[in-house]
Design a protein around this nucleic acid. Structure first.
Lengths: 248, 248
DNA sequence: ATTATATTATTATCATATAATTATACATCG
DNA sequence: CGATGTATAATTATATGATAATAATATAAT
């Protein structure tokens, strides 16, 4: 039974009117339909477009403003902020970006950051992880293996593995990167469901190094895991692209 | 009572009721006054506490929800989410965290992340920066020098310097780290206004390496700049702490 | 014991009214 | 002419009160 947890990226958010408005406007902004400094519909217009009351529109606007996408001022109206202000690590913003960008480019961006963060996180985890945290990472790995043998997704377990390492780094700011990893795994899995099975041994090396308290080894193992995964998925994406080209 | 924001990053809050409610509730949550899963006031109670109408409360709640601090569901009410969900890189959340944490600890966390990101960003900048971007970084540095000679703050210029390098890395996700740097600089400056003057030569080395398109040199220079700044400020913090101890 | 149903607390949405803010245009004055 | 104050109007900010939808909990029926 799959718990609908962290990874409801694909799922359309249409629970309620508010969510719908946020979703549509957020996508538009991130996609670039509504460019900074250009005219933005005012509350009344938005209400008309979505058939929603002013309250709903205002709440949606506040929500997008909290993510740094827009700003709303009296008399001036609503305006899209420059991308510098966007909270790009927000799960929703990440999802909007992903759904409106060439997968290969997005994936590349993502891994460039992961490669900066996670190896060092593994390093710190090897130094600082509590026994409890090591156990958490360890069981996550075991469940990845089990999922692999059972031939099911395992993406949740994979995320728990990586999140566990971030947590063991004992720096709360690190945990923020969990959203990046979540999206990364989600994409990997969409592209090639075998990817995590192939890389189980590399995960194991990271885990072992953390258990042995060998920071440098953990760091290098994580580096290798990430760069090989990137290579693997990029290859798949290139192949898919080639097929699409030929199909024309 | 409500703590007036020690940190006016961007815009000072309290401009209006909405901002006030967001500020106070956000601080409370981040500080840990309102713990996850425990009872949270409902809309009516919040309205009574702040003397605000339901609209204001609802908008504030949506705003905090957009930052991942709380979740609001029909009949269940509002509840604080686990810290994993918080958008810790959001400028406001960062500010709330800073104003409710021991400065030394916060500063350490911050630099641990900066040390993961910025050296590699400098590396990428040396590879990828456009002439225009190099010019931007360069003028930012010149203005830092000018500010230093004039004996004024220079914190804006410093931020532009570091942001410029992130931008030159050509990875939008990198830019998100600008908020971290902004807060970091703000704190450095509060602690010791001389800090950036002392480290001008190290900035220069980073700039030169980028101009010369020497990624490895740029990376190492940035690494040195950051770790020495960290050391410098930590020393000041320790001294301040010692003084406070003695004062008892 | 399990399942269906009713109750009820809470948020979701709507509609409307008034206040506050501020960009703009205009007028006034030095 | 240029600066500076002032009225106007557009837009968001806030308030109020009503109804709808949702789901946790209690209750009744099987």
């Amino acid at each position: 039974m799959n718990t609908p947890g962290f990874l409801d990226l694909g799922r359309a958010r249409k629970r309620n009117l508010f969510g719908h408005v946020v979703e549509v406007l957020g996508s538009r902004i991130v996609r670039g339909d509504l460019r900074p400094m250009e005219a933005f519909p005012n509350e009344a217009d938005l209400g008309r477009e979505f058939g929603a009351s002013r309250s709903v529109i205002r709440e949606a606007v506040k929500s997008l403003a909290a993510k740094g996408l827009i700003e709303s001022r009296t008399r001036t109206g609503i305006r899209v902020l420059a991308p510098v202000h966007w909270n790009l690590l927000d799960v929703e913003v990440l999802a909007w970006r992903y759904s409106t960008m060439p997968p290969a480019q997005f994936y590349h961006e993502l891994f460039e950051i992961r490669l900066m963060i996670e190896p060092q996180a593994a390093f710190l985890a090897a130094q600082r992880a509590t026994p409890r945290q090591i156990a958490e990472i360890s069981t996550a790995f075991d469940e990845m293996v089990a999922a692999s043998e059972a031939g099911v997704s395992g993406i949740e377990q994979d995320l728990r593995f990586h999140r566990g390492i971030l947590a063991a780094g004992q720096n709360p700011l690190l945990l923020q990167m969990g959203s990046l990893i979540g999206v990364g795994l989600y994409i990997s899995h969409k592209i090639s469901s075998e990817s995590y099975t192939v890389f189980l041994p590399l995960h194991k090396k990271v885990l072992d190094a953390i258990i042995k308290r060998s920071p440098d080894t953990a760091k290098k193992a994580m580096q290798r895991l990430l760069s090989e995964t990137l290579e693997f998925v990029s290859g798949h994406l290139r192949k898919a692209e080639a097929v699409r080209q030929r199909a024309r």
